[in-house]
Amino acid sequence: MTMMTKSPDRSALEQEQFLEILSREEALARFEAALFPRGILSEARKLAAALGAALAEDVVASVDVPPFDRSNVDGFAVRSADLAPAGEGAPVRLALNGEIIHCGTAPTLQVVAGTATPIATGGPLPRGADAVVMVEHTQPAGLDAIDVRRAVLPGQFVSYAGSDIARGEVLLRAGTLIGSREIGMLAALPR
C-alpha cells in the first residue's frame, strides 16, 4: 500500500509576530482602559439608607454651619467692653433686655451699652453682643438686672457662622465610605 502525503504548507508554519511596540501614550491608554473599562455606577439614596455606601462624587457645603453666630452656653449675650472692669470685688450691673433667646428664636432687640439678653445654648447671638457670659458667673439683681463678677473677651462662648462647616468647603471626597460620622455631617446640610 502506498500513501501519498501532502507536503506541508510553509505559510502555515510561519509564526505571526506577537511583539508589538507601543508608544508610552498608547500603552497608558490601553492600561487605563483595562483598569477602568466603564463608569462607576451610582444611585441616589436617602440619608437613612446611605450607611456603608461609598460616595460617587465630592460633597461640597452649600451653606455655613452654623448659619449664624450662636451661644455655646446658657447665659447672657453681652458687650465684652461693658464687662472689662468686672471682678469679684467689683461686679458690673447690666439691665436685662425684654426677651429671652432660645434655639430657633430670632432676636429682636439689640444689646446696647449696659444691657444683656438671656440666651440659651445654641441661641442666635443678638446684634450688638460680641460675647456670652455664663449664667454661673452672674447673680440676679432684681427682676430686670444681673450682676456680673467676671470679665469676658470678645467671642467668648460664641460659635461663629461657618465655624463648623464653611460654605464651599469640600466635606467628603468621592469614594469615602459613609459611616455614622459622615451621616452627621451630611445631616447638617440642606437637601
Rank of each mutant, 00 (worst) to 15 (best):
T2R: 15
M3F: 14
M3T: 14
T5W: 02
S7K: 15
D9E: 10
R10H: 10
A12H: 09
E14Q: 07
E14R: 06
E16R: 15
E16D: 04
Q17P: 07
L19A: 11
I21Q: 09
L22D: 00
R24N: 10
E26V: 09
A27P: 00
A29P: 09
A29Q: 10
R30W: 02
R30L: 14
R30H: 04
A34M: 10
A34L: 14
A34W: 02
P37M: 04
I40T: 14
L41M: 06
S42Q: 11
K46L: 15
L47A: 06
A48N: 12
A49D: 15
A50T: 08
A53R: 15
A54S: 14
L55G: 04
E57G: 09
D58P: 13
V60I: 15
S62F: 06
S62H: 06
V65I: 15
P66Q: 05
D69I: 08
S71W: 03
S71F: 00
S71H: 01
N72K: 12
G75H: 00
F76I: 08
F76C: 02
A77Y: 05
A77G: 02
V78M: 03
V78N: 01
R79P: 02
L83E: 02
A84L: 09
P85A: 02
A86I: 05
A86V: 08
G87D: 11
G87A: 12
G87N: 11
E88H: 12
E99C: 07
E99F: 01
I101V: 13
H102K: 12
H102I: 04
C103I: 13
C103S: 13
A106I: 11
A106M: 10
P107W: 05
T108M: 08
T108Y: 00
L109C: 01
L109D: 07
V111Y: 00
V112R: 13
V112E: 08
A113S: 11
A113V: 14
G114N: 01
T115W: 04
T115K: 02
I119S: 03
A120K: 10
A120V: 08
G122C: 04
G122R: 07
G123A: 01
P124N: 03
P124I: 05
P126K: 11
G128V: 00
D130L: 01
V132C: 05
V133K: 05
E136K: 13
H137K: 11
T138F: 02
T138E: 01
T138M: 04
Q139K: 13
Q139F: 08
P140K: 00
P140E: 01
G142K: 07
G142A: 06
L143F: 06
A145G: 07
I146W: 05
D147M: 10
R149F: 12
R150K: 14
A151Y: 07
P154F: 03
P154W: 01
G155M: 05
G155R: 13
F157E: 06
V158K: 07
V158W: 01
V158D: 04
S159I: 06
S159D: 10
A161T: 11
G162D: 08
S163N: 09
D164N: 12
A166T: 12
A166Q: 12
G168L: 03
E169H: 08
E169R: 15
V170W: 00
V170S: 04
A174M: 03
R181Y: 11
I183Y: 05
I183L: 15
G184K: 15
L186C: 06
A187T: 08
A188H: 05
A188L: 15
L189C: 10
